[in-house]
């Protein structure tokens, strides 16, 4: 079963099909939300909210083949909302929470919910994640949508509501800044 069949079944009220869609997309949405929001708790909330909204509104999705960009759009809007709320609440700026690692003590002892995802990557991946997190919001948003969610440029444009040309140049710029954040030179810039 592909997304299309699942979405069509879900639209007919098949909750099992929707449950499968949740499973299929959760991880990619989570990584995206995490890289945008920088907090696993906020990311989990954003993903959950996105699925809730998608569930409630799935009958408004006209073209079932557009499920993923539509879902991503919902997630991105939710992330913007969360960032907006955080700015109002925390005027001193964003805090960057490192991704949780497997060795981290269980949150249960502190009364917080259990960690939804553990970071099992290498040191190099942790560096990459930190470099990604250090980018500005727009840059990491396009990279997350493009590479974590495998969206086409056109779908990134739709999800972010910006022109495709802007997406392309923003991806190139973000890749350059990411490379610099890793101590490499920006590969897409032509040396003077």
């Amino acid at each position: 079963m592909d997304d299309l069949q699942l979405v069509e079944a879900a639209r007919r009220g098949n909750d099992r099909a929707f449950a499968v869609l949740v499973r299929l997309h959760e991880r990619a949405l989570y990584c995206t939300a995490f890289s945008i929001l920088g907090s696993s708790w906020d990311a989990s909330d954003a993903v959950q909210d996105a699925f809730l909204e998608a569930y409630a509104r799935i009958d408004t999705l006209r073209d079932a083949s557009r499920f993923k960009p539509w879902l991503v759009r919902i997630l991105v809007n939710g992330c913007y909302d969360a960032l907006g709320r955080r700015r109002r609440l925390v005027p001193v700026g964003e805090t960057v929470e490192p991704p949780a690692t497997g060795e981290r003590p269980a949150r249960a002892s502190t009364g917080q919910p259990e960690e939804a995802h553990a970071f099992i990557g290498t040191e190099a991946q942790l560096d990459l994640f930190r470099a990604l997190r250090a980018l500005d919001e727009g840059d990491r948003m396009v990279l997350a949508l493009r590479y974590f969610l495998d969206l086409k440029v056109g779908d990134v444009a739709t999800a972010l509501d910006i022109p495709a040309g802007t997406v392309k140049s923003r991806i190139n710029r973000a890749l350059g800044r990411l490379a610099q954040g890793l101590g490499r030179h920006a590969p897409l810039e032509v040396a003077q």
Partner: peptide, 27 residues
């Protein structure tokens, strides 16, 4: 080209650096 390809590959792989502690198998 090589540097960009490497960076893009690293980014795509970063997804797999997150392991759901609740088991999340692909369907």
């Amino acid at each position: 080209y090589e540097e960009t390809r490497l960076l893009v590959g690293e980014l795509k792989d970063l997804r797999n650096a997150f392991q759901p502690t609740c088991v999340f198998e692909e369907v």
